[in-house]
Design a protein around this nucleic acid. Sequence first.
DNA 1: AGACATGTTCGGTGATTGGCGAACAAGAGG
DNA 2: CCTCTTGTTCGCCAATCACCGAACATGTCT
Lengths: 130, 130
Amino acid sequence: MRNAVHPTVDAISLPHVLGALSDPVRIGLVALLADGSERGWGEFQVPLSKSTLSHHLRVLRESGITWTRQEGTRCFVRLRTAELSERFPSVFPAILAAAVAEPNPVTLAASGDEDSRDCDNNPDVGVIAS
Amino acid sequence: MRNAVHPTVDAISLPHVLGALSDPVRIGLVALLADGSERGWGEFQVPLSKSTLSHHLRVLRESGITWTRQEGTRCFVRLRTAELSERFPSVFPAILAAAVAEPNPVTLAASGDEDSRDCDNNPDVGVIAS
DNA sequence: AGACATGTTCGGTGATTGGCGAACAAGAGG
DNA sequence: CCTCTTGTTCGCCAATCACCGAACATGTCT
């Protein structure tokens, strides 16, 4: 939310990071962000309540894995790949590669936003269940 | 344990491994094994009871990170580096390198003949073995 | 303004975890 | 035989965790 706390690079600890990635949902979220894209909360489809999803994204943020940006009422998240690679050289790319090869309990839904994003804009989707 | 259970390579899961490494004591143990050596239980000096140390070594074993061998009443442990590297290419060497660079709550004691446990009060100096 | 959408936060709950000591099993050696 | 050493297992306890629904805050849209 507003007062999103992001640890500095030095404050990121290895056990903390590994603990954050030890949950299938969280490593699934990371796998979906592994291409460097920024995703909105609403794109993540996972059989959990929104409060639990918020919890998982907070754990990822406070462990230093992700960076959260807010825009209006929406939040967007991306990996702190460069900083993680600086802190733990070669650990993060390797984990990302392994993560995307694992079964993922999280899937992507249509974003439905009109905001700028770096890559794909799907033409067909645009209808969301009301 | 006497009937030590080791998972097969296929049964090793990434979240499970990362969870096992998310504890400072356990990643410290792994860091001490990172050179490929085999260590006896008694070489690990950590401010924990022996039951808790046994618990941590069991977690490492059952997550597939270590291999335990018994000889008489003593147990020896080593990393399953080759199998881990096969299962998650390049993840494990990277984590090992990061682990040995972290502060380690576990230290090594003498491995040969050691009988000076009762009167020494300076464990800091001379911890370097071999 | 009112209705809606998006996330956070606050209890609460059940499961898991890390820690301990005591008791136990089993080999080594007096 | 008995004892010592090494490690496992068994409660037990406190802390943390994952999860939920409800309530709240805040921004957007009609």
